[in-house]
């Protein structure tokens, strides 16, 4: 019985593989130059700006055409953070996470990072808010924000991060992403359909429908996750590392 199911599954998979390979001719250049109308790249370059109202084609592809893939990436990051937290959780129970690995830093570094910290955070937020207009986006901006927190974690030995707040930010951002995607289903389209918010004028901050909202959510999520990872990794007891 089991073998029959396996054979049936293999047949289904094989049928669709052969079917799609039949559809694309051998050696057919489907990722070629934008001047060639048949190719995928030409389709995206010619239609993206008109259909999504986003000036940055790469962002439109990542968040809209391949929005499901981006959701998967965010989930992978979330799973990695959760895994790290669960591996190191047992040690925290024994009270070994109170101290940070880093030594007391100099006054120069403390003062300098106090000055630089708001600007680093500002840059990160700028990058993910303008994800649909300029290079960069949610992942890059979130990483920059996490760098700012890393600076503070290294400079101040007693810098405390609220883990509850981090979890809340992360969960709310994830819920925003998924519920915006579901709203597309409710309004009668497909998952992550970009149709229920007006697209606005091209090349302005409020344009592109759901794309900037999703990228801002991704930015918050990535920032919270990476900051949590850094905090977990930096607060293992020093004696454990030396020996």
């Amino acid at each position: 019985m089991k073998n029959i199911i396996v054979i049936a599954l293999l047949l289904v998979v094989g049928f669709y593989l052969v079917d799609s390979f039949n559809y694309i001719k051998f050696g057919d250049n489907r990722l070629g130059a934008p001047s060639d109308e048949k190719t995928v790249g030409a389709y995206y370059l010619n239609n993206t700006v008109e259909k999504t109202g986003v000036a940055n084609v790469i962002t439109a592809i990542i968040v809209n055409y391949r929005g499901f893939d981006t959701l998967g990436e965010v989930t992978v990051l979330f799973l990695a953070t959760t895994g790290l937290g669960s591996i190191l959780y047992r040690r925290r129970k024994e009270g070994e996470h109170e101290e940070r690995v880093t030594k007391e830093s100099s006054y120069l570094l403390q003062t300098g990072s106090k000055i630089l910290f708001p600007f680093v955070i500002l840059l990160g937020i700028y990058v993910f808010i303008h994800g649909h207009l300029t290079p960069g986006g949610g992942f890059q901006g979130g990483a920059i924000v996490a760098t700012g927190f890393l600076l503070m974690l290294i400079a101040y030995k007693n810098f405390k991060l609220g883990h509850n707040q981090l979890t809340w930010v992360e969960s709310l951002a994830g819920i925003t992403f998924v519920s915006i995607g579901m709203w597309g289903l409710i309004t009668g389209g497909t998952f992550l359909e970009n149709s229920f918010i007006p697209k606005g004028t091209l090349n302005s901050l409020f344009s592109g429908g759901i794309i900037p909202i999703i990228y801002i959510a991704v930015g918050f999520k990535v920032a919270a996750e990476l900051t949590g990872v850094l905090d977990i990794l930096l607060s293992i007891k020093p004696s454990k590392i030396k020996k």
Partner: peptide
């Protein structure tokens, strides 16, 4: 001017 001397000091 802020970041480069700071990082070299560290």
């Amino acid at each position: 001017g802020i970041a480069n001397p700071l990082s070299s000091h560290v």
